[in-house]
Design a protein around this nucleic acid. Structure first.
Length: 175
DNA sequence: GCCAGAACTCTGG
DNA sequence: CCAGAGTTCTGGC
């Protein structure tokens, strides 16, 4: 498998976008490029990875727009591998509106788990390979805590604050 | 209420 | 298989 990727500056640090010719396969945030490349490599141990500046530039631009609060919907083509359960969790995550949060437990219940599968949901979120596109940062704990975030807790907090601010800006006076 | 410990589901090694 | 996870529930105080 061939995967091209690029790393650019973003409001939340370095942003890595990786894609096959079919869609986005990996999106991550970090402080240093090497850290992001290592994460990509560990997700795709046997793929041919090629760093190219112009890789997926349309999609990268869309992600940057999103981070700046100019785009609320990231409906981009994905090319990711996942278990059935992960697919269903990610589907639920993508259904959460911009600026809104949902708890791990709520997501578990939405999947039809009467028993508590919140931990499994957390695990599925944690292994989401395309941050932002699948908004795993909108999943929080029931006790009001943020829970964790694969790309750094302060980024999760910053993302949620940015989303709230952008919503305020657009719809603030309307209610 | 608060805290420790058990319960629950999925998955990588 | 089993440990451990981006959790939640329960029971004792």
């Amino acid at each position: 498998m061939r995967i091209g990727y690029t790393i650019v500056d973003s409001p939340l640090g370095r942003l890595l976008v990786a894609a096959t010719d079919r869609g986005i396969s990996h999106v991550s945030l970090g402080d240093v490029d090497a850290e992001l490349e290592a994460a990509l490599r560990s997700d795709y141990p046997s793929a041919a990875l090629e760093r190219r500046e112009h890789t997926a530039s349309q999609w990268t631009a869309a992600l940057l727009d999103y981070l700046r609060g100019r785009t609320l919907d990231l409906d981009l083509p994905l090319d990711v591998e996942a278990t059935e359960f992960q697919m269903r969790v990610w589907e639920q995550l993508r259904a959460i509106p911009y600026g809104v949060t949902r708890t791990y437990g709520e997501i578990a219940r939405a999947l039809g788990h009467t028993k508590n599968a919140a931990r499994a949901v957390g695990r599925a979120c944690a292994t989401n390979p395309v941050s932002l596109v699948i908004p795993c940062h909108r999943a929080v704990r029931e006790d009001g805590g943020l829970g964790g975030y694969r790309w750094g807790l302060e980024r999760k907090q910053a993302l949620l604050e940015r989303e709230r601010a952008a919503v305020q800006l657009r719809f603030g006076g309307m209610f």
